[in-house]
């Protein structure tokens, strides 16, 4: 009997899509290794209803802990307590950011192996084997675990959430956690601040995405024109959102939006994995980058090696002319 414990991240009354994916994945895997999928939620006054919802996605039991939200270390304490009492064989996290911090902290706490950016989990001899792409996704490693606990942190969108049929609500069990002093010494002052305008990039069929290669905030004007010519929207990388050049609502990637437009056109974007995970399902990927070695060319359908400042304005005119 090997049970799997999933951390389910929630915010403003809803679970994170990647956490739900992890619950479904755990349920699928647990069935193959003769165990159950369990989930842990931690927060201030998490309702029975919310916690029990995880049953719909495959959790047989939900452990509920009272504690500060949005920080990793309290969750490490809670998971260590639950795993210590119950003896789960694996801990599983969906893609994002908090799960990386929690999973790594838990590995230290419980002397366990941890692997992150996992894209697939297989079962071999009733044990889990994680697939982890390495070296810019040019190779995929198989990772197995020694010891009593294995920790798997998924890549963004690696695990799909699916509703169980028939779905039963999970039993909810409250856990008392004796938090470590250092785990609760940080204070969340403000969470989930939306910097910049509330734009919509998820419904556009054409996305023109810009990155640090635009050079400055005004560089986005070039992309506004091109997007207007297509009748599409403009999106961005974390680098330019962090720099304050573009609204957070328009960010694609690991800590931003996941998009899959008909056409995704990148200008001045290197194609980091954390960006790629949010747009790789796009139907047609076009990239303009002056560096022929940029990773984005590894996954674009059409790559243009050149200066965006020269190409984009001409392309805008040509698209306008063609569309009439």
């Amino acid at each position: 009997m090997t049970d799997i414990l999933v951390y389910a991240l929630h915010y403003e009354g809803a679970f994170n899509k990647n956490s739900l994916g992890a619950v479904s994945e755990a349920s699928r895997l647990a069935a193959q290794i003769g165990g159950e999928a369990h989930a842990l939620v931690l927060g201030q006054g998490v309702s029975d209803d919310l916690a029990a919802q995880l049953g719909t996605y495959g959790a047989a039991k939900v452990f509920r802990a009272e504690g500060p939200e949005g920080l990793a270390q309290p969750v490490v304490d809670a998971m260590a307590k639950v795993i210590g009492d119950h003896g789960h064989g694996y801990a599983l996290f969906g893609g994002g950011l908090l799960g990386f911090e929690i999973g790594a902290g838990l590995a230290a706490r419980m002397n366990a192996g941890v692997v992150m950016e996992v894209t697939q989990v297989n079962v071999e001899d009733a044990k889990l084997v994680a697939e982890r792409p390495i070296l810019g996704d040019s190779s995929i490693s198989q990772v197995r675990y020694d010891g009593e606990l294995g920790i798997i942190i998924g890549r963004l969108n690696a695990f799909e959430a699916s509703r169980e049929d028939p779905a039963g609500p999970a039993t909810v069990e409250d856990v008392e956690v004796a938090y470590q002093a250092f785990s609760t010494s940080a204070t969340m002052i403000k969470r989930g601040e939306q910097r910049g305008a509330d734009i919509n990039i998820e419904d556009a069929s054409v996305l023109i995405a810009g990155g640090r290669g635009l050079g400055k905030a005004e560089g986005f004007e070039l992309l506004d024109d091109l997007a207007a010519a297509f009748g599409g929207a403009v999106a961005a990388t974390r680098a330019v959102v962090d720099a304050g050049w573009f609204p957070y609502a328009g960010q694609i990637g690991q800590t931003g939006k996941t998009v899959a437009p008909k056409l995704y056109l990148a200008a001045g974007i290197s194609g980091a994995i954390q960006h790629k995970v949010g747009m790789q399902a796009s139907e047609n990927i076009v990239a303009i980058n002056k560096d022929a070695n940029a990773p984005i060319f590894e996954f674009s359908d059409l790559g243009i090696v050149g200066d965006l400042n020269k190409i984009v304005p001409k392309l805008t005119e040509a698209v306008k002319a063609k569309k009439g």
Binding site: S139, S141, V143, D146, A292, S300, G306, D307
Partner: peptide, 23 residues
Amino acid sequence: RARWFDSAAPPPKAAGEIIEDED
């Protein structure tokens, strides 16, 4: 406690077309 084994290349993806801009 994480043991790494045999790396394999991912399934090949059709190579994209590349245009070298000559201005």
